[in-house]
Simulated scan of single mutants.
Amino acid sequence: MSLFSRTGFQQFVEALPGTSMADQWESSVAKVGDKVFGLITDAENRLTFKVSEESFEILTALEGIEQAPYFAKRKWVSVSPVSALTAEEAAEYLRRSYGLVSAGLTRKLRIELGIPL
């Protein structure tokens, strides 16, 4: 199933420990510990996720990837289904986003959510 479909996105993120889904901002939003780590828009099936500063510079130079509206100053990107990223690369970046966001949670909360330390 494609990560660029609502169903595929949901199946992928729900396999990560301590995640939840919410419908907001006309999108399906993936959260860990009530903090957003990714979303897929309902209308265009664009993925949005957090990246490192270095990845932000690299990815936003690629076709089909741009700074995410409202999130860009915090190093988030918006990826079109027809971007230069392969499905495997997009999945890896989404996993990294989960890691970046979950690392900011308290140790106690990570333990409660079953997130490896």
Rank of each mutant, 00 (worst) to 15 (best):
V36D: 07
R107P: 05
G18A: 05
A87G: 07
F37K: 04
Q24E: 15
K75G: 00
V77N: 01
L117K: 13
V13R: 00
Y70I: 04
R107I: 12
E54D: 12
N45P: 07
G33M: 06
Q24R: 13
E66L: 03
E112K: 15
T7C: 00
G33I: 07
A22Q: 14
R110G: 15
Y98S: 12
G38F: 00
D34N: 14
R6Q: 15
P69C: 09
A84L: 05
Q11P: 00
V101D: 13
A15I: 01
E112S: 15
A87H: 09
V36C: 04
G99H: 03
A15D: 11
G99E: 14
G64I: 09
G38N: 04
L113P: 13
V79H: 04
A91Q: 13
D23H: 08
S97H: 01
I58R: 09
A61S: 15
P69S: 08
Y70R: 09
T48M: 14
G64H: 08
K75H: 02
P17H: 02
L85V: 06
I65D: 07
Q11H: 09
F37H: 02
L16E: 06
S97T: 02
G38H: 04
Y93L: 15
L59W: 00
V51Q: 02
Q10D: 10
E26H: 14
V77L: 07
F9Q: 07
L100S: 08
A90S: 12
E63W: 04
R96Q: 15
F4H: 15
P116G: 14
V13Q: 08
A43V: 05
E26S: 15
S20H: 05
F4D: 12
E88N: 05
K73T: 06
S80R: 09
E63R: 12
V79I: 13
A90P: 01
G38R: 00
A87C: 03
S102E: 08
I115A: 14
W25D: 15
T86M: 06
M21N: 12
V36Y: 02
M1Y: 03
N45I: 02
F56K: 11
